[in-house]
Design a protein around this nucleic acid. Structure first.
Lengths: 158, 158
DNA sequence: AGTGAAAAACAATGGCG
DNA sequence: CGCCATTGTTTTTCACT
């Protein structure tokens, strides 16, 4: 699944993950390549799946989404069926931005974004805890977000 | 900071946060509004800061970034100066995708993405632990990522 | 692999209902 | 807010190196 990329590709990716609104012309000026090459390389990167998609990055504050929380979930007696149901539900919940199975003392970590603490409470008590598979839930709330870029570190070597 | 939006705006935002490569024409067909209206509304949303930017969403696997970890950091005797240095460093580290100060038993949670476990070890031992402010570091590694969309939940009412 | 220029698609604006 | 027309950009493709 690892793809062969040269240093121009890395530069293009680095620029696009910060600002995908730039034109090929503008990108070409920054990295010293013609606009048509940028176009071709982008198509290649999209086709290979290196670029998954383009998205608008929205401001949670402006949308009244004031609470970010990390919720650690521990499952009980791991019946496969219940665990699968839990996973399906979590994947479908719009408040869940991320969900990972983890090493260590919790089974899952969920990143949850909601308007306020009341909404967080509702998600935990009405959605998560009633699940049969769920044994324990522990939540931590983000008081301050220093960084929330979700920018991948691209090695600069070619 | 909360902005007044109608249901068309929410639909536009919902579409753009999934796929910002759509043309205004395509968006207009999906929500039953003219392309020129989409254009005007987008400009307004961008100007108001509801849309922060457009970005390319890259595939970590394809780039050889195989390890995602959450690292909880506890600071020691909180000298303001050392804590500030820690924050500056964390913000500047490319491997750190997210950093939040948290309620609960750790002071910070960092989301870290690196090529492999060796690189994670290097980040922890060479970057984080040597910091004077840092007392303790606990890392959990994502074994499987169920969801990593970072899509905000937009309320549909309006 | 790369450039540059032509052709096709698109965004943005203004006028009118 | 829809519709239409216009203008200026931008992407994409093609011929060529």
């Amino acid at each position: 699944m690892k793809i062969a990329l040269d240093s121009f590709d890395y530069k293009i990716l680095g620029i696009l993950q910060d600002n995908a609104a730039l034109t090929n012309q503008e990108i070409s000026e920054r990295i010293g390549l013609s606009a048509s090459q940028i176009s071709r390389r982008r198509q290649k990167l999209e086709q290979e799946g290196v670029i998954r998609r383009y998205r608008a990055d929205l401001n949670p504050q402006a949308l009244g989404l004031l609470v970010t929380a990390y919720v650690g979930v521990t499952l009980g007696a791991h019946s496969r069926e219940n665990a699968a149901r839990f996973r399906t539900m979590v994947t479908a919940m719009p408040e869940v931005q991320e969900a990972h199975t983890m090493t260590g003392d919790v089974d899952y970590i969920l990143k949850i974004v909601v308007p306020d603490l009341q909404a967080l409470s509702r998600v935990i008590n009405d959605d998560l805890l009633p699940q049969e598979a769920v044994q324990n839930v522990r939540s931590s709330i983000a008081m301050e977000t220093l960084k929330d870029e979700n920018r991948l570190p691209l090695r600069s070597t070619a």
